[in-house]
Amino acid sequence: MSQLHYALFTGCTAKQSTPELLSSTLAVAEKLGIKITILEEASCCGASHLQDFDEFLAHVLNARNICYAEKLGLTMITICNTCQLNSQMTKHALDTDPKLKARVNEKLAEVGLEYRGTSEIKHFLYTLIDDYGLDKIKEKVQVPLSHLNIAPFYGCHNIRPSELHAESNNHENPYNPTSLDSLIGALEGKPVEYESKNKCCGFHVELQANHASEVLSGNALLDAMDNNADVMVTPCPLCHLKMDTYQPSISKVMGRDVELPVLHMPQMVALALGCSEKEIGLNFHVQKAKQLYLSKKG
């Protein structure tokens, strides 16, 4: 097999509050021999909020991002569910609506770009599973995660709407997703079965409907804890921010102590592949997670 090579759309969080997501992604790619070209030109995807204000502008900006992957002739990979959703939504809208595509390209022409629709868009989770392969990941495991009960938290925007994602997420069943479970299994961890794994974390209403947001993440975290999770893992940095950063206030709302380390999907893989502590970056978590370095040795 020729070397896998992707254009990485980092999104905003990996460049700011979750630097550990970017470093662990790059570390995993290096360990597995996957070549990554970072799209330093790519802007914010709008995070489903710019879309509320100005949907057309959001399409223009997302189309511009995709243009840069097309220029390289590469599949664009994402490390954030919401980047994946919004990029994919723009791609779908432009590929199926020639009038909209023409309107967007009229704007892009002003900066010398053209959206053609030649690059696929795929989340890194599905790249690892579908393109690289779980069997090959299994062979590379240096630190089996067999001592950990790991609760997979899928995040909405990778699995819904299922029709939009079907090609890029290998027809994941949004009511019973399995990809993250299989990845945990390949790293020899024990996937936790719990009902909330495909539910919403409430991140997107954090500011305007704080209580609802806290209850949604509280329900999911407590469900994982009640099913003996040692740690939660998610492919989405927005789920991560909500679930990791807000545990003290979630505890107050839920009336119970909520304490569970939350890993980014690439951090979990990096732990198992034996990447360095600096690359994995557990020190950037608000909920203490550094003990995971120790327990993997013990």
Binding site: D52, C156, H157, R160, K199, C200, H204, S213, L216
Partner: peptide, 29 residues
């Protein structure tokens, strides 16, 4: 509309494939 959590559960659920979230976004706009 500002209380919609953008989870896309409604899009998945609609048996007539109407994409309710798309209409919620239009109401925002």
């Amino acid at each position: 509309v500002w209380d919609c959590v953008k989870c896309n559960e409604c899009v998945e659920a609609c048996p007539k494939e109407l994409n309710p979230l798309e209409k919620i976004t239009k109401l925002h706009n």
